[in-house]
Design a protein around this nucleic acid. Structure first.
Lengths: 253, 253
DNA sequence: CACTACTGCGTACGTTATACACAGTCCTAC
DNA sequence: GTAGGACTGTGTATAACGTACGCAGTAGTG
């Protein structure tokens, strides 16, 4: 039970970490975990997450469906690994210009990645999602940005959760609205987005006064600067963190 | 195209908003949309989201599988409605003690709901998720908390996105860790959570110095005060918002 | 009374993940 | 070398799923 590699994790995840190289006994493998995951990512990028089935991925590799199960115990594992390679190598976010520009770079790198692979946001996350190598390298890089702040460990962790949570929320919401705009046929940039228009019809101004004011202000018409709202929310978070760091510094003094 | 009820939304969603009552022509309906959704929620609450299949829900209602499709065009719609009833009536968060206690109440009400219905976090969200009635009432209530702040509309919207994104992120992460603890057999409250233990084995201290420091500090041992981290992150967000509100006030003066 | 819109439901189909068994391959131990 | 065994790829089979389709019965409307 206290094995050297006894992480309790599936073999494919350990393989992704570089542990557990394949044994050299049997025939030369024609496939590899990385090729399978890459093929699956390609399917998701081109045809969406729903198109990622074991048979489709296998077909794209010229292999049989069941061959994949030599490398992956179940589809969940494949999804976890897909997300991990979609995140890719962590960015060089931490610089010598302070934690705030660093986290800014970190967040915008994550947003860029989610733009490139929108399906990541729709992968149902399981317990294993938290222990994939690239995502932990992203986490490490984010924590590096916070190194010279006086935050205590749990606060650093909470901060990263805060930032990534915001980026993912925003990417999800803006991505969904954009997708529903596209599928609605309207070429976008219309007088009012289909989302706002539907909401206008559904909500009673007396019962939803605040929401109505928001819509009337044209929040959903958007398309001014696509990322203005994102930048704004992010700066708010960073302000909150900055206040905390300042407090910690005065405490230390 | 400019119909009075032409929201472009599925009929079941419009029905959930109270529009489109069922016609009085044919035989008396033995089922109802609400009964179906309630049954589905009950299945999810007791046996998990994976157990929610059309046949299972129908069986629990003593009906045939295909009967459900008289009330719902596809399973996606059922899921959207399930989430909506899981959220339930919006809380009375906005009080006369200021926006900050209001948002605090709002957030903790959402967290409580997500604790009661953890499967909500695993429902793949689609475009329709954004236009369900209860969730928009929650949004309205949150916006009401911000009424007397000087924030402009887009900032209010971003603020709510910030808060709900954080609550959902935190609920997801803490829920996942808890679930993986339970499934690992360890009765919890052990020396080190299985998550931290796995990470310790997987990460090279030289390559992941910050992460290692976090784990060593016992962040994942947790179980001190279960919600300490949550409260902490939330106050950080509120601090950031407070800074913005203060700035807006000095601008107005 | 016919008409018609509607409800409930049985059947059928295509797709999915995956358990299992089998055949071929290549390293290892003798 | 040769026997053994571990490993690979794969075909078949199964159970479950979402859902399209069509039919039978029902209740209001003309």
């Amino acid at each position: 039970m206290d094995d050297k590699s006894g992480t309790g994790l599936p073999a494919s995840i350990e393989a992704a970490w570089g542990l557990r190289e394949r044994p050299s006994k049997g025939p030369k493998p024609g496939l590899s975990l990385q090729r399978i995951v890459d093929a699956a990512v390609h399917v998701a990028d081109t045809d969406g997450l729903a198109a990622v089935s074991m048979s489709r991925v296998a077909a794209d590799l010229g292999a049989a469906t069941m061959s994949l199960y030599r490398y992956v115990r179940a589809k969940d594992e494949l999804l976890v690994l897909m997300v991990d390679t979609a995140y890719g190598k962590a960015p060089d976010a931490a610089g010598d210009d302070g934690w705030r520009p660093g986290l800014r770079r970190w967040a915008s790198a994550e947003l860029a990645g989610l733009r490139r692979h929108p399906w990541v946001l729709h992968v149902p996350l399981s317990g294993m999602s938290l222990v994939s190598p690239n995502q932990n390298q992203w986490l490490e890089e984010g924590l590096r940005c916070l190194r010279d702040t006086g935050l205590i460990p749990v606060e650093k962790m909470s901060t990263m959760l805060l930032v990534t949570g915001f980026v993912r929320s925003w990417a999800t919401m803006s991505g969904d609205i954009n997708a529903s705009l596209l599928s609605a046929g309207t070429t976008n940039q219309q007088a009012m987005s289909s989302f706002g228009r539907a909401l206008t019809k559904l909500t009673d101004p007396q019962q939803f006064p605040e929401l109505h004011a928001i819509i009337a202000a044209g929040v959903f018409d958007a398309e001014d600067g696509p990322d203005d709202e994102y930048l704004f929310g992010l700066e708010r978070i960073l302000d909150g963190i900055e206040a905390l760091i300042a407090k910690r510094e005065t405490e230390e003094a």
